[in-house]
């Protein structure tokens, strides 16, 4: 059954890939078994992260980059991530509006995702989705996300090259870039460069980079007008140059190691959260809580004991089987 799905995906079955992404989002436990088998077919794609504040033109840049990549004969997977409403748990995902022309191109696969409180975090789901699109045969995978929160920043970190987009006239321009994401940018793009304030913003970003960067790669600052396709070719050239740099300097391997490390942590966290939730479900946690409240036991000892029980039962496979639904 799992092998069948893997086979379908590696044969380019878009529907099977889409279904597996859904499974990753809804029931990671079940998806895990398939992902295990899928792993052999991954590792070929390059991953580009695109992030920036709302309205800076990320979707348009993604759209234009993809068109050029397609002209170059490359296939593209796009993961477009938008925030979930914290109040309702729902989401309105509208990135496709800017990519309408791509929707009938069989060499492009677009998936909209919301940041909904994924167990194990959004980045776990994103990493898995990258693998699925990789196995589906996409040469380049673009992760596009709003760069506002830490969790979104975490997601683009899995990319080989991160493009940070800003635009003039957003008020406190540089602040938006500064807010904790400056250091993850490999390439800086000032989009809507025909707008007033472009020069000032460019200078400020350049200055900030001069002060802050400390690797051998000095991020370039590019100007684009994505709606008119201005500067997009150059952006792709710079992405190529960065990838080349990564390969030659050995940083690519280092990044991928970092990424793997991060994934391990994400997965462990996710798995432990799941395991813990079984204890919430079956009332075991309640018993411990009762003891603590009645001062029959201190929380520190209780957790130590609990941990060893969990590790034991996990290695016995009890928990995992429990959770297979």
């Amino acid at each position: 059954m799992e092998m069948e799905i893997v086979e379908k995906i590696t044969n380019g079955d878009r529907r099977a890939a889409a279904k597996l992404i859904t499974l990753v989002e809804n029931n990671f436990n079940q998806a895990r078994e398939i992902l295990k088998k899928l792993y052999n077919y991954t590792g070929n794609a390059l991953v580009i992260g695109i992030t920036g504040p709302p309205g800076s033109g990320k979707s348009t840049v993604t759209d234009k980059i993809t068109k050029i990549l397609r002209e170059q004969g490359k296939t593209v997977g796009i993961i477009a991530i938008d925030p979930t409403s914290p109040f309702t748990g729902g989401a309105l995902l509208g990135d496709r509006i800017r990519m309408q022309d791509l929707s009938l191109d069989k060499g492009v696969f677009i998936r909209s995702m919301s940041t909904r409180g994924h167990l194990g975090g959004l980045s776990q789901a994103t990493q898995a989705t990258v693998k699925i699109l990789d196995a589906l045969g996409k040469d380049i995978i673009i992760i596009e996300t709003v760069g506002v929160g830490q969790s979104e920043v975490d997601i683009v970190k899995v990319a080989d090259t991160v493009v940070l987009i800003s635009m003039p006239g957003m008020g406190d321009d540089v602040q938006i870039i500064k807010a904790g994401i400056m250091e993850i940018g490999d390439i800086f793009v000032i989009n809507k460069a025909d707008k007033e304030g472009c020069e000032r913003l460019t200078t400020e970003v350049e200055m900030m980079l001069d002060l802050n960067h400390n690797s051998r790669w000095r991020p370039p600052v590019l100007k684009t007008i994505a709606t008119d396709n201005v500067g997009i070719k150059k952006l792709l050239e710079e992405i190529d140059r960065h990838i080349k740099y990564l390969k030659e300097s050995g940083e690519l391997e280092q990044r991928r190691r970092e990424s793997a490390k991060k994934e391990i942590f994400d997965l462990i966290q996710g798995q432990w959260k799941e395991i813990l939730s079984t204890f919430v479900d079956n009332g075991f946690l309640n018993k411990i809580v009762n003891k603590i409240v009645k001062r029959e036991e201190d929380p520190y000892t209780a957790v130590e004991k609990l941990s060893s029980v969990l590790v034991h039962s996990y290695t016995q496979g009890d928990i995992k089987n429990d959770r297979k639904d």
Binding site: P54, G55, L92, G94, R98, D228
Partner: peptide, 10 residues
Amino acid sequence: FGEYKESVQL
């Protein structure tokens, strides 16, 4: 002239 693409803030 090219064609316009709608601009939607959802």
